[in-house]
Design a binder for these strands. Structure first.
Length: 144
RNA sequence: AAUGCAAGUUGUUCUAUCGCUGUGAGGUUAAUCUCGCAGAGGAAAGUCCGGGCAACAUAGGGCAAUCCGCCACCUGAAAGGGUGGGUGCAAAAAUCGAAAUGUUUUUGUAACAGAAAGUGCCACAGAAAACAAGGUAGCCACGAGGUGCGAAAGCACUUGCGGUGAUAGUGAAAAUGUGAGGUAAGAGCUCACAAGCGUAAUUAGUGAUAAUUAUGUUGGGUAAACCUCGGAUGUUGAAAGGCCAAAUAGGUUGCGGUAAUUAAGGCGGCUCGUCUUAUUCCGAUCCCGAUAUUUAUCGGGAGGAAGCCGCAAUGGGUAGGUCGCAAAGAUAAAUGAUAGAAUAUACCGCAGGGCAACCUGCGAUGAAACAGAACCCGGCUUACAGGCUUGCAAAUGUG
RNA sequence: GGCCUCGUAGCUCAACUGGAUAGAGUGUCGGUUUCCGGAGCCGAAGGUUAUGGGUUCGACUCCCUUCGAGGUCA
């Protein structure tokens, strides 16, 4: 009995935690899909970031896949690029849950790509704000 | 005590929440979940060197190419690094001396083998930039010519002739320096001394090298120009290389079918293959004949191929997976984000001490340098906030 | 990850085997010509030869260091 209760608890925890996870399946890795996305996807900007997005019907995409890009042209140092990517990923991870629910309810699948357009290293809060704006816009696209 | 420069060393810690990568155990068919463990530097950087490792090549030797280059010892697999010494150059100080110079000491510095094997180059200026050579500067009046005087010998003057390479001049650099002889004037032309260099011998030293003696010689610089000498290196790099099974359209080969039949006999390794004879078949090719409209159809002969379909094999291409691969380890590339707290230093404020520079205590602020592994090691180079240690520098304050 | 090439006026390129004020076109500025503009003609400015060292009497050139740009690989 005890084990069953424990398992139940774990499952309930899992339901809460899955909202804030970012596993490998949610990352956009396939080169073909990336090429497609940049060919056919539409885009929006809100200052430090730019979002390129697109609908798909690929089987292995659960609700969405996302990737984060910082151009080497503006940031020469590897560690600057790393910090920016980490901040972007973190912001997306914490705020993606409502977007996922929307997508699941509409039965649609999305590919997302966040490009860093700014030329200075931005603080976490600025990035978080722009990610929120982008997610709202993508949600509006889903609603259409 | 503070300031600057150089070298060495160090290059935050703790808690909470939510995560990331790998891995072990457990549950589950599996996806995945839970728990535990591990997870970025002194340079991970530049890729400037040297290895390991891998594949290929390889009788032996040479050429080419690249790298290294005073000596001894220590360290290292090697490149390299360290300590000490030698030589050259530069600076400073001391000393001898009238001075130059020399000697000694200290500090810094050197891609520090060879320019006397050979080739090339050395702008402009200058006579000349290297087997020497020489002018309307200068010096000379010996030789040659001319003029004058003179009986002649000779003397004097002179030179678009001649001699000279001392002086001046050029240049980054000018053929070793000083003195004497010598001479028309001069010149290593001769001699003495000194200096440099080569060779040989002896002595000291493990050695680089130094000293002495003998003998020869006066030969500019450049090897970070080619080059010579000595030493080292086979070539290519993880996109190396091994393994795996799919899909796609070609190529080649084999078998079967489309359509290649049947019968008899011979031979062999005898459920099969092959040969001969007779018979049958043919849509591709060639030849002949007939019909008709260029084309097409029909008949006969030669000939038994090519094409198409299926299966299998083979080699190459496209695109993957996995091993290589790690007590960090991926392949759109992890090692984090947020919140709170602690402390070092700097700055600010207040108080105390001190003649002063400054020091001590309390409060507020609260990590902010350079920078992110991709096969692994060792070195080199470059970047670096603040702390600590050591050395040097010039000037100031106090005692 | 390995390897290779390049960096010169605002721009595009020269400068021989080290030799002297680094040159040409274009652009800029000034003058001239024209009623005005353009074109033409004349003249001028503009360079730390990417950076910092070294070799040499002398470096765009040779050697080393760093920075930046570009290319290439089965």
């Amino acid at each position: 009995m005890c084990v069953k209760v424990k398992n139940y608890l774990y499952q309930s925890n899992y339901c809460h935690k899955v909202e804030a996870k970012f596993t490998k399946q949610e990352r956009l890795c396939s080169k073909k899909q990336i090429d497609l996305l940049f060919l056919k996807g539409s885009s929006t900007t809100a200052f430090p970031l730019k979002l390129v997005y697109m609908e798909t019907d690929v089987a292995y995409v659960d609700p969405c896949q996302a990737m984060f890009v910082v151009p080497k042209r503006t940031f020469k140092r590897a560690h600057d690029r790393n910090t920016l990517k980490r901040r972007m990923r973190e912001a997306y991870r914490l705020h993606k849950a409502p977007f996922y629910e929307l997508a699941n309810s509409k039965n649609k699948k999305m590919l997302l790509c966040f490009l860093f357009v700014g030329k200075k290293i931005e603080e976490y809060k600025a990035i978080e704000a722009s990610v929120l704006v982008h997610l709202k816009k993508a949600g509006a696209f889903l609603n259409k």
